[in-house]
Amino acid sequence: MPRRKRPTSTDVARAAGVSQTTVSFVLNDRPGHGIPEETRQRVLEAARRLDYRPHATARSLARGRSDIAVLAIPGLPIGAGISRFVEGLAAELAAHGLTLVTHLAGGRGRPLTDVCAEIGASAVIGFEAFDDATVRALYRAGADVVIPSSPEGSSTAPIGRFQARHLIERGHRRLGYALPRHPGLLRMAEGRLRGVAEACAEAGLAPPVVRSTDLEAATAAEAVAGWRAEAVTGVCAFNDETAIAVLAGLREHGLTAPADLAVVGVDDIPTARLADPPLTTISFDLGEVVRRRAAMVVAGLAGREPPGIAAAFDPRLIQRPST
């Protein structure tokens, strides 16, 4: 079966019985040209009938910029927390007429700057901070706005401090930290670990005992054995997935939380409340983070001063039986 040729604006003009210039004015919604409403509706109906889609390059030329924003995600597993952030940001940008495209680094695909130049991205949002050279390259590639920061701001340490203070307030004097094994997560995890260490130092406690685990019960059980050998009674996990793995590791030893080891996660993913036992976790206002990122993009494209980069996380403890 032969491929159907993509309809063009010339096809729409022919079907509507108008000039190609009139089609351009109508489809790009450019006011001030005195086009009668009957003519405008005839053009729109012809475009619908032909299933016409404006070419991105032509639309960008008409507007002076594209409607594409790229979110650069480093090479890390896309868990529930990241998925929620991407979905929220896509919806928030769509409300402003922008389309979000994600670029996953660390694979065998093309470099971020090449992709942005190819698709004509107007804005680039970094899930993690860009270095200065990358920022300059993105502007040279045609981006009008580059936001070189993570959705958690410049530091993740406050999250770790919040976790540790909760355990310390509950009487735990020897803390552990569950570090993920995936290298793509280490930068964020080490920031949270720094916050745990700071909270321990403030309370006059020894530094946290760090053990690594992936999302397997066997490796989590090894970490649990290490903490037990060091008399650890409470563990701050990098995120909820890691915390749930620690709970599975406890069960491998016939142990329970919080009687043998209290566990607290981060993110309040939907499965946290279904863990065994239900997981105590740190929740923060992801919606506010998303709104601020979108506001920065929209303001930058409009030539206005964007709002501040820092987001008010307003972290909340979700107390459940694991602590």
Rank of each mutant, 00 (worst) to 15 (best):
Y139G: 05
L167K: 13
S150I: 01
I147S: 02
A143L: 07
G171W: 03
E152I: 07
L167Q: 03
H172M: 09
L186K: 01
R173Q: 10
L167R: 05
P158K: 13
P151T: 00
V146L: 04
P158Y: 14
G153A: 09
G184H: 01
G153S: 04
S155W: 09
S155G: 01
R174C: 10
T156I: 03
S150T: 04
P158T: 11
P148M: 08
R165L: 14
R161T: 13
I147P: 00
I168V: 05
A164R: 13
S154N: 14
M188W: 01
R161V: 13
G184Y: 00
F162P: 07
G142L: 10
R181D: 06
R161G: 15
H166R: 10
S149W: 15
I147E: 03
D144W: 07
F162R: 11
G160C: 10
T156V: 08
R181C: 05
E152W: 14
G171E: 01
A157P: 14
R140F: 06
L175R: 06
L175E: 02
I168L: 08
R181H: 11
A178S: 06
L138V: 08
S154I: 14
H166C: 14
S155T: 15
M188N: 02
A141S: 15
A141D: 09
R173W: 09
A143G: 06
Q163W: 04
G184W: 01
R181I: 00
Y177I: 05
A157G: 13
F162M: 14
L138R: 06
A141I: 03
V145I: 04
P148Y: 04
R170E: 09
F162I: 10
P158D: 09
A178R: 05
A157I: 08
T156R: 15
E152F: 14
A164T: 15
H172N: 03
H166A: 06
H182W: 03
H182C: 00
P148N: 02
L179V: 04
E169A: 11
G142I: 04
G153H: 10
L167P: 11
I147G: 07
S155N: 13
E169G: 14
G171K: 13
Y177M: 04
G171S: 11
S155F: 06
Y139A: 06
A141L: 01
A178W: 04
I147Y: 02
R173L: 06
R140M: 09
A178P: 02
L167F: 05
A157Y: 12
L138F: 02
P180N: 02
L185A: 02
I168W: 08
R165E: 13
S150V: 03
G153T: 04
F162S: 11
L185P: 03
P158C: 10
V145L: 08
L185R: 02
A141V: 03
G184R: 01
H172L: 12
R140C: 08
L179E: 11
I147F: 08
L179Q: 07
H182K: 04
Y177L: 08
I168P: 11
V145P: 10
T156Y: 07
